[in-house]
Design a protein around this nucleic acid. Structure first.
Lengths: 230, 230
DNA sequence: CGCGGCTTTGATGTTCATCAAGTAAAGTGG
DNA sequence: CCACTTTACTTGATGAACATCAAAGCCGCG
């Protein structure tokens, strides 16, 4: 057991400090024993809607989209990056996933046995409280984002997305879009054609430079005004 | 202490069975000591956006709306009925409410001291797990509803709302709307005029009968088709 | 090379918000 | 309790915003 524990390095994982700080060493060892780490390439499916929830999954590296199928169209719920919990939404309310997860960039996912995690949560209340806080924050964020976006017009929505990638994800005004125009449309409920049209408008107005998937925000202030008043 | 416990009747509260089943009697007594029960009349504010979170609140009787202010317009996030937790959304992620709560019908709210609840959650992990599950279910529901609504056209949205009140809230095809036309608009992101217009259309089409706030759904199947295909 | 998916632009029509104007209902103060 | 004010409700006319349809270029991949 100790052997497993040493080889798996969970004790030194950056996640431990962030999240498993309240987990005792012997509990961590139990988690480690049943852990597996998977690599997914860009475009690969990590979770399929309807699947049974067997693992508590978090992202070590990469970028993924969480989305659901609605009629003949997908709706992107949110994105997740390193150290985000990919399976946190339904884990405690359902036995099956009601959304899918796909890698947008090559990603490494750490999968912990869900029953072990639940068992530890029901024995270690500090750990449970950590889960509670994490889940609450994530849900609040998703709800806030969806409500923010739905009250904006199309220009405002595109501005919102661009600011999101520039400020939240890449933290710089130039970046490569990790998503297609179609996926942007699925994120903010509009048609692909209009995503393209409005990006072109922003380019013509000198707000952006666009080279395929590469975006450079030239006039961030103006973009923020469009986002706030749109 | 025992005295307080006996007079407050928390031990016999229906909530206990549903939710505090994992709370030990002495813990319940601690909660009781700092509990207060408030009555709010229709239209009265229960929580104001931005307020500090001091209580863990649940609804004993009545119906309330949870909403936030966005620009010059309110957005209704969800409704809550008896035994729902009114303050569960931000409780574990924030120190202040980022939404408001107002009574739609005369309502009785039980307010528990938030620090006591948190303290018990961090000592009693079964209780914490219960919270986790409850919160997860609520968040999932809100997210699902918002995503469902946003992909529908206006007729589909109105149908959705009517079905929601008929099936989920009142569990019968005739009911008195607890909300104004304006509030329906704030719930599904459209203008008040169009809410009225589409209700009138449904009336002319023989799908509904309308007498002010009283709605009678005549053709539920047709309404459901409009909801699903709209 | 050719096929399918992604991207782009334009033309067209539908859906929806906005504006306007009026009626009904509900709350307010004398 | 009535006049007054405000808020809710309703309908129509108009224009703007947006989806849909169509056509063509582009790119990656088998």
């Amino acid at each position: 057991m100790n052997q497993d524990f040493k080889t798996c390095k969970c004790k030194d994982c950056e996640l431990k400090e962030l999240f498993f700080e309240n987990v005792r060493d012997n509990e961590l060892a139990n988690i480690c024993k049943l852990k597996q780490e998977n690599t997914y390439f860009k475009g690969e499916d990590i979770i399929n809607e309807g699947e049974e929830i067997k693992y508590f999954m978090y992202l070590k590296e990469g970028l993924v989209k969480l989305y659901r199928n609605a009629g003949n169209r997908d709706q992107i719920i949110t994105f997740a990056g390193p150290l985000d919990f990919v399976s946190i939404l339904s884990v405690f309310s359902d036995s099956n996933f009601n959304y899918s997860v796909t890698a947008l960039e090559d990603s490494v996912v750490c999968c912990l046995d869900i029953n072990t995690v639940k068992q530890i949560a029901s024995q270690n209340s500090n750990f449970a409280m950590g889960l509670l806080k994490k889940m609450s924050t994530l849900s609040d964020n998703i709800i806030k984002t969806v409500l923010d976006i739905r009250r904006k017009n199309l220009r405002g929505r595109i501005a919102y997305v661009l600011i999101y990638f520039a400020d939240e994800v890449y933290k710089k005004p130039s970046f490569d879009l990790p998503v297609s125009r179609k996926e942007i449309a699925e994120m903010i409920e509009m048609t692909t054609e209009n995503v393209i049209r409005i990006l072109s408008e922003f380019r013509k107005d000198g707000i952006l430079k666009i080279f395929g998937k590469t975006i450079e925000v030239i006039e961030m202030e103006r973009l923020k005004r469009i986002c706030n008043f749109g």
